[in-house]
Design a protein around this nucleic acid. Structure first.
Lengths: 218, 218
DNA sequence: TTTTAATTACCACAAAAATGGTATTGAGTT
DNA sequence: AACTCAATACCATTTTTGTGGTAATTAAAA
């Protein structure tokens, strides 16, 4: 089955060039081509293509990113590949956060563009190594958020607990194992258990999640 | 300035081959080579290389992933590239979560390996398109900042989970036991387990608290 | 039509958590 | 001096979780 593709780009020359690439290739089907976000938002949910090539800068009106964000929430199955002239790291990153699945540079050769579409269609996420790093970093920084905003995020020390017990509760709330807590605090695992035992007694709970819920005031 | 590289691999042949690639190339410096995690954990913080090539399967003892996790927390500046024979998606994904910056397949040609090291050193994150997609998806499933206001008190369904899975996640978040969830939903405890198993797979977590933290957007 | 995803269920094994006991040390209090 | 509490550590046992198979049914999608 052919991969159906829609194109959204405000620049007529580039749009036509992309159309030609799709039209001239076996295994790909051009199902629509739009010069602005409004037309795309209207037509793409009806056409339901497999893949949309979306320009990031659509000139006047809505940006390609906003367009992806809206379309993706309506049609999560459609795969969006952002196209851009320059490697605007931050923009592409925003696009990925908005729901885009990959991106290519417009200067990419026709063959590579087709490859990238196929790659996307087959479960990949074509993107440059620089963007990948940003995504990986953002991904990795997620668990650390709790670290940095320990008190700010929410979750307050409980006054009936001792300092050490509160300290351990914070680590419990991150989902660490006893052995991990132990090595982090340089105490034995058995000691951690005992602290946890006392925490449960004082809070009148009998498992981790209930204790953590107290910590977060739920 | 040359890029200094350490190698960690339990297979002597592969290790020697990687050593040769580094030694024979201009612009790269071999600063250490280790056959197991213990030696690596001991020496790498002292050597402080720019890049570490780390085998995922280190045979006996600690895995390459655990090794990266520990070294990364000690020395966040060091870049870790995972090396593997097969495309073990889940493992590599775990490695990235643990702090790895990229990965290559061992079958990669020497020239490509050097390119990947340079790419890593220059801010990229060399990885296959399939892994990139996984990372992007995990990244997207994280609730964004704008949503955080609503989620602060209640928690919200995660779109990559099925309805039933979300339903169970809500009960998990209350700290209910499997048997309690089972009787509340009129299904068997084993079915609850299986749902939870899938929830953990999809969220890439491995215990209740981590899953619940996702639910509450942390 | 064939394939995929969701839901259900059971099993076995391993790992971790929970329960509840003892016991030592040091700091602070009565 | 005797007492309590917080923190440390170890032990034994049970319960609960986590991992990872198999498998049937149904609904939806390719």
């Amino acid at each position: 089955m052919d991969i159906s593709v829609c194109i959204v780009d405000d620049n007529k020359d580039i749009r036509t060039a992309l159309e030609q690439i799709i039209l001239m290739s076996d295994g790909y089907l051009l199902s629509g081509s739009f010069s602005n976000a409004d037309k795309a938002l209207e037509q793409i949910p009806l056409l339901m293509p497999d893949v949309v090539l979306m320009d990031i800068n659509l000139g006047e009106g809505e940006s390609g990113i906003e367009c992806v964000s809206q379309l993706k929430s309506q049609c999560p199955e459609i795969l969006f590949m952002m196209c851009t002239v320059y490697e605007e790291d931050e923009k592409i990153f925003e696009a990925l956060a908005a729901g885009a699945n990959g991106y290519i540079l417009k200067k990419t050769s026709p063959g590579k563009i087709l490859d990238a579409i196929k790659e996307l269609y087959e479960g990949g996420a074509p993107m440059s190594s620089q963007i990948a790093r940003k995504v990986v970093t953002a991904f990795q920084s997620r668990p650390n958020e709790a670290d940095q905003f320990e008190t700010a995020t929410q979750g307050k020390p409980i006054n009936i607990l001792s300092n050490r017990e509160n300290e351990i509760l914070v680590l419990l709330a991150k989902g660490l194992l006893y052995k991990e807590i132990a090595s982090q605090l340089f105490i034995s695992q058995e000691t951690v258990r005992k602290h946890v035992y006392h925490i449960y007694e004082k809070l009148h709970v009998n498992n981790r999640v209930e204790a953590v819920n107290r910590f977060f005031g739920r």
